[in-house]
Design a protein around this nucleic acid. Structure first.
Length: 721
DNA sequence: ATGATGATATTTTTT
DNA sequence: ATATCATCAT
């Protein structure tokens, strides 16, 4: 008998039950902080070390590269045999791998490239231009949504009909034309990776048999986030003999808006035979006060699988609920509390500020800068998504494949070289008419069909790319990249620009060369040359949001971005109806429940202490709003809440009518909550009055100057409409 | 080709 | 308030 103590000892009874089960289909409902990753990794270790399963027979899928990386690292640490042969990766990564290996069977050119959503968006716009479809009537975003939505439901254009609906007919036209052009250019978008991989194992009996025989064990993380296509793919791969182990939490399903199907959890038990279900409810992250608050909130959702988080740890501090006057007051509160935490020996990186929408970060940032507290925003643009990087990559792509139309169109006039929209239009039309690539069309038109000036410009662009290709052909990747950046004139173009932004762009371009130096291509990979490997890496793993800068700083992020993370001290701000739950989700019940789950996710990020705040007044899209406290606040069990009043004066409890509802009138006929302008301090909001007559004072919170008490007689406040 | 002007929208985001 | 984007004038 193998020694299994290293696998089972660190687990509780329920976790053990899941990890040590015989090979059956399993559904693990894992609450927040219940050790879900641990169960997943230990299960893999169990299969390999105890059940004697070959690492080759295991497929473990996640959604993000980060999660996949962590999973592999933890498994390899645990397991006693080499496990490199095991397939661990994202859905897209694994799908890509299969398509490379079987590009012939999948009907793809060996050199196919991956385009990201931004490339796809541009591509769709281009296709619409060709079809002469009015962008203002048919937003390309909607077209993109339509196309990806259908792909992720497994539907090709031929599976769809317009049903006599004009709008649908237009969308279908675009879908068809897009597919045709994409196919011709040898490109694959993100949904296409999944759809192709699905069709590959669905329609190719030989490969289906091969993978069913090989992949005996499939494990899926964050199962509540799978879409229909991912579900179908797993099902085909598993067949009847494969064993599937899925881990998820229906209460943390917050991505239905991008195609995730929570009900896949329910379907799983119906579609797979003999599913053993386990509930992980013991939480190792948060205090009892925090967990009970979360439990109390999520109980208001219907149709749950049902879970209650518990801990054998201590009750902990109550949740502080702060009613701020406005967003500035709210930020001030957050900063004061954070300071206390840090002054009492905590570190800044213990602290997270979570908000519903990105726009809310601005005020917080301003105040953090003013308070001299370093912070870091989680999320934002990634390295390989920056436009200058995408330009450089487009040069590499075009050098690599002349048929890459999106790359061609991106850089034909970047940097500007006298090829205007008219010329590009002509090329695009010619390409369409002759069913050729834009590159071929450009060659044809440069020879005949363009005015002298345009023809010259196009011809020199063609010569440039050919020259670059020749120079780079035998070079190593870093040199190829250097050529793409410098010989193209990209670098020089930004150098001419003396702005601060351009400086950052140059740095990024230099960094791109560095990235290629640091990029270790897999020599043994026969399916891709190093350049293709790098391009794929860039598309599939767009890299870190922010370079380095992991020093000790307060963490700011949206609630969505916070999923999967934990922090000793958490602030959840902006709990106001219309903001959170967001206005657009309030009308429909499903939307509201998803917002509630999002709130649940936020609460369960906190380990030791949670602060929740809402503002009574907030500027949204430029206009001042009076905000009602979030309905979620009323759903939090009062037993663990402590209402914190603003120190200055009488705030009213959350559940009482807003204090702006009074019609108390102060000096000069000003009202509470009114927007006023001051000669020196600018605009602000009236917070309070004090005293009468000549000594009357008015408390105003100015947008930029902060809050001040002014003497009514001298202030000369002007009401703002 | 570039810059000014005005219209428009403005939740969440990975691959 | 702010950013993005199309359009138009230079």
């Amino acid at each position: 008998m193998n020694d299994v103590s290293h696998i089972l000892d660190p687990l509780n009874a329920v976790q053990r039950e899941a990890v040590g089960a015989p090979p059956v289909n399993q559904l693990v409902l894992a609450g927040a902080g219940s050790g879900k990753t641990r169960v997943l990794t230990h299960r893999v270790a169990w299969l390999i070390d105890v059940e004697g399963v070959s690492p080759q027979s295991i497929l473990s899928v996640t959604f993000t590269n980060k999660a996949a990386g962590e999973m592999r690292a933890r498994i390899e640490q645990l397991v006693r045999v080499p496990a490199q042969a095991m397939w661990v990766g994202t859905f897209h990564g694994i799908a890509h791998r299969m398509l490379r290996m079987h590009h012939r069977e999948a009907g793809l050119p060996q050199t196919f490239q991956i385009i990201d959503s931004d490339d796809q968006y541009r591509f769709i716009r281009r296709v619409m231009k060709n079809l002469e479809i009015d962008e203002t009537r048919w937003p390309p975003r909607q077209m993109q949504w339509f196309i990806n939505g259908n792909k992720e439901e497994g539907r090709r254009p031929e599976n769809l009909s317009d049903a006599g609906d004009y709008a649908r007919e237009q969308m279908l036209r675009v879908y068809r034309a897009y597919e045709e052009a994409r196919e011709r250019a040898g490109l694959v978008d993100f949904s296409e990776l999944l759809l192709r991989a699905h069709e590959l194992v669905r329609d190719n009996a030989e490969l289906q048999a091969h993978y069913r025989k090989r992949l005996r064990h499939i494990l899926v993380d964050e199962f509540q986030d799978t879409n229909s296509l991912q579900y179908a793919w797993i099902r085909i791969l598993a067949g009847t003999a494969g064993k599937v182990f899925v881990v998820g939490d229906d209460d943390q399903s917050i991505y239905s808006w991008r195609g995730a199907r929570v009900d896949n959890i329910v379907r799983f038990s119906e579609d797979f035979p003999g599913v053993q279900t386990t509930r992980l409810e013991q939480n190792y992250r948060s205090t009892a006060a925090i967990l009970n608050t979360a439990n109390g909130l999520i109980r208001h959702n219907t149709g749950r699988m049902g879970k209650e988080l518990w801990t054998d740890g201590s009750e902990g501090e109550a949740i502080d609920l702060y009613a701020a006057y406005n967003e500035y007051d709210e930020a001030e509160y957050v900063i004061n509390q954070s300071r206390d935490w840090i002054d009492n020996g905590g570190t800044r990186s213990d602290v997270a500020i979570l908000y519903r929408s990105n726009a809310q970060s601005r005020v917080l940032e301003e105040q953090l800068i003013r308070a001299d507290i370093p912070y870091r925003i989680y999320g934002g643009q990634k390295f390989f998504e920056r436009s200058e990087i995408k330009d450089a990559m487009a040069y590499l792509r075009l050098m690599n494949s002349r048929a890459d139309d999106p790359a061609f169109e991106r850089i034909i006039n970047t940097p500007t070289r006298g090829i205007g929209a008219t010329t590009v239009d002509k090329i695009r039309h010619h390409a369409r008419e002759q069913a050729m690539s834009m590159w071929q069309a450009a060659q044809a038109l440069a020879a005949a069909g363009l005015s002298g000036r345009a023809a010259n410009a196009v011809q020199s662009f063609i010569d440039l790319i050919e020259r670059m290709h020749a120079a780079a052909e035998t070079a190593a990747l870093p040199e190829q990249t250097r050529i793409a950046i410098h010989d193209s004139g990209l670098y020089a173009g930004h150098e001419k620009d003396k702005s601060e932004k351009a400086e950052g762009r140059l740095e990024n371009l230099d960094e791109l060369v560095n990235a290629t130096v640091g990029f270790v291509a897999n020599d043994e990979d026969e399916t891709m040359d190093p350049l293709t490997q790098f391009l794929t890496h860039a598309a599939l793993e767009a890299g870190e949001n922010q370079a380095g800068e992991w020093d000790d700083s307060v963490q700011l992020m949206t609630l969505h971005a916070a999923k999967g993370l934990e922090f000793p001290l958490v602030f959840m701000v902006g709990l106001e109806d219309g903001l959170f739950p967001h206005q657009r989700s309030i009308e429909d019940a499903n939307g509201l429940e998803e917002e509630r789950r999002l709130c649940y996710v936020g609460i369960t990020r906190a380990m030791q202490k949670l602060h929740i705040s809402h503002a009574e007044s907030r500027r949204i899209h430029g206009t001042q709003n009076i905000c009602a406290p979030s309905r979620f606040l009323r759903e939090l069990p009062a037993a663990h809440l402590r209402e914190v009043r603003p120190s200055i004066q009488s705030a009213q409890p959350v559940f009482a009518p807003s204090r702006w509802d009074t019609d108390e009138t102060g000096p000069d006929g000003l009202k509470l909550g009114q927007q006023v302008r001051h000669g020196k301090f600018g605009e602000g909001v009236v917070l309070a009055f004090e005293g009468e007559g000549a000594r009357a004072r008015i408390h105003v919170n100015f947008d930029s100057a902060g809050s001040k008490w002014l003497i009514a007689g001298y202030a000369n406040l002007q009401p703002v409409a």
